[in-house]
């Protein structure tokens, strides 16, 4: 079976700095892949190259075996790839409900329909279901910019699911989320994976979170993959301990 996502010898340099240095990785449908590594190791640059936000200097990105290297993020989004960001990226002046509708509306109807169709694009019901799933219902009409950091993080993740994506790239979903919310978030992502078959690639520094969520983990250091395998195996890998986890 063709992997959902493949990167072959992906490279990206910024001047003399080789941020991504020949990374090859595959992600199978239904898999949760964890990505760990020290700050500045190239994780977010890898995400940006996979999603077309930065053009790679070399290498290839395949989605369902189709070459999508350098495609625009919006085109990949239409193919069912969505992402969240390390730093919060919501529409602060719009309500929580409007943020969710915006995240899905460009996937609904024709171009003409988008111009003249209903204001909510028929997405209010699914947005409300998403609010319930992420326990944000009481905040549906609150301004997104007024939510707490953890709530905005949940909204950001919920937005990534509004278009029914096949592949979601989550950049530090646990960052800034309190411990009570964290367990719920992990269960939620796991449920999305098991019930909807959603595939995740998750960058995360919270080891307990990423190790307990992921089916497989890769560790990146200085733009290269130094370990790839089941979470327990990667955690014990001498190179990972030396370059990232410490003793």
């Amino acid at each position: 079976m063709t992997p959902l996502l493949q990167a072959h010898d992906l490279r990206r340099h910024f001047g003399g700095v080789q941020a991504v240095n020949g990374i090859s990785v595959t992600v199978n449908a239904g898999e949760i892949l964890g990505v760990i590594g020290p700050n500045g190791s190239g994780k977010s640059t890898l995400f940006n190259c996979l999603l077309g936000q930065i053009a790679p200097s070399g290498g290839q990105v395949l989605l369902d075996g189709r070459d999508v290297t350098g495609w625009r993020p919006c085109d990949l989004n239409r193919l069912g790839v969505s992402r969240t960001f390390q730093l919060l990226q919501v529409f602060p002046q719009l309500s929580v409900l409007e943020n969710l509708i915006l995240a899905g509306q460009e996937h609904v109807g024709s171009r003409i329909g988008r111009l003249f169709g209903p204001r909510d694009a028929g997405l209010t019901a699914s947005a409300e279901r998403m609010l319930a799933r992420f326990r944000l219902q009481p905040l549906a009409h609150a301004r997104a910019g007024g939510l707490s950091y953890g709530q905005q993080k949940l909204l950001d993740i919920a937005m990534a699911f509004m278009a029914g994506p096949r592949l979601v790239l989550l950049d530090e979903p646990a960052g800034g989320v309190n411990l009570t919310m964290l367990g719920g978030l992990r269960d939620l992502l796991r449920a999305m994976n098991e019930e909807q078959g959603a595939t995740f690639v998750v960058i995360e520094h919270n080891m307990d979170f990423v190790m307990s969520l992921s089916h497989r983990v890769i560790c990146i250091a200085e733009g290269r993959i130094i370990a790839d395998g089941p979470p327990a195996e990667v955690r014990e890998d001498a190179r990972v301990i030396e370059s990232y986890l410490g003793t």
Partner: peptide
């Protein structure tokens, strides 16, 4: 940035 990613 996000608007572009969402296909707007």
């Amino acid at each position: 940035t996000v608007a572009l990613i969402l296909g707007i």
